[in-house]
Write a protein that binds this DNA or RNA. Structure first.
Lengths: 234, 234
DNA sequence: CCGGCCTGTAAGAATTCGTTAGATTCTCGA
DNA sequence: TCGAGAATCTAACGAATTCTTACAGGCCGG
């Protein structure tokens, strides 16, 4: 319940980046995806408030996806598409989309339309909360506070929280560095890898991990990381 | 909801007719108005579900009307306008419209967009209040007074009040510096950032925050601020 | 005109977080 | 088992951002 979450599904990385930057600036959290399959996987553990969906995806029929989203998720759906025909727009809206933006778009307008969707509260999900418990720890994302088994509190920073949240949202599942970079809004910079290392290192320290033998955040050499431990969201 | 009611505000009778026909055909009830004054008179006795508003009205500034509608009515608002500039669309949406359709339009698309609005149910928009309570505090904006848990009063200034109100109106949500600047009417100047820092610093001391570990106004490095704490307006 | 309050500017301290670089660990083939 | 090379870890540094205090100009009532 902190900031509204906007997912961006588009196969062009630069467009994802642009949208992500603008929306972040406007106060939203964002998650970017290049493929429908990745996006659907993430949906199992996350419930976005607004979904921006590009119809021109290579790996799946976008309209089918929109229809499923409309039926199954509580999110508002905004189609972003290069197809400007009226008929396209009508069928998109009829399948359950809430808005239809034509490429090329203006960032300011996209932001305004996302805001309009969030504003109608259509996206209120009752049970969603921002607290997770795991292995004796309690992470309160709304307060940026981590509580250990004895109830002792310590603060974590925004950057640390992003990583921690990523782990807790997909426990016991491999998270590749590429995914991480995407989710953490990392600029496509090459040196971002090192920054991630450091973030994780700091997080490990804060979780009291033994560097030689981490119990919670396991690194998979050459692939990514895995968060072990049972997570319960509240 | 039996048949959703759609109002059509446009000064050209033929357009009203076209829209009315198409919407009736699609299963809506419609009411047409050629002037804002007529429309407002009708609003006193009827509560439409969706309002189509033409911005090019002769007798009133359309955007003002949209803003009032957004604040006072629970209806979804769709602006219909000949002005195609991005800036027009953005300000329209920002004033509270839910959608923006450019003339000349296709009937099928208008119908689809009206349907999309009806589908998500409408918004409750809170009216203006002047008193808020949070975490033992009570802020009285009409008197510029802040009351602590023991009923002890202290005054706050206008500038402090602006910031506090901003926080209380969007609790537990990230507020970016850009948003703040926008709301507080800050000149785009670079030095306004520092002024904001100072305002917040002063507000924090007034709220008795521990500088090392603020509980209510949390800063998100590189992004903005977040106000924690449950707020109730009265 | 004086004095108090409000508010922005300036400046130095403090914090966050990415970058660098050397150390460490891992994989794989010899 | 050993060694080379790649990947990862972490301590230290520094740039950017934010916090706080001090100060000055503006406004208003007396």
């Amino acid at each position: 319940m902190t900031q509204p979450l906007v997912t961006i599904l588009d196969d062009e990385p630069e467009i994802r980046q642009m949208l992500s930057d603008a929306l972040t600036e406007a106060g939203f959290r964002t998650m970017g995806f290049g493929r429908a399959t990745e996006f659907e996987a993430a949906l199992r553990t996350t419930a976005p408030d607004v979904c921006l969906v590009d119809l021109g995806l290579p790996d799946r029929d976008g309209l089918t996806l929109v229809h499923r989203l409309a039926l199954e998720s509580g999110a508002a759906i905004i189609i972003v598409s290069g197809r400007a025909q009226v008929q396209d727009r009508v069928t998109g809206l009829e399948l359950g989309a809430d808005d239809y933006i034509i490429k090329p778009f203006e960032l300011a307008e996209v932001v305004a339309r996302v805001r309009a969707r969030v504003r109608d509260g259509r996206t209120e999900r009752p049970g969603e909360s921002s607290t997770a418990t795991f292995e004796g720890w309690t992470a309160r994302f709304d307060r940026y506070v981590l509580e250990d088994a004895n109830g002792k509190e310590s603060a974590f920073s925004h950057a640390e929280g992003e990583v921690l949240r990523l782990f807790l949202e997909a426990p016991k599942r491999l998270i590749t560095r590429a995914q991480m970079q995407e989710q953490l809004g990392g600029a496509a910079g090459e040196s971002f890898d090192r920054a991630m290392d450091v973030r994780i290192s700091r997080l490990r320290t804060k979780l009291g991990e033994d560097p030689k033998n981490p119990k919670l955040i396991k690194t998979i050499y050459g692939a990514g990381y895995i968060f072990l431990g049972d997570v319960a969201w509240r």
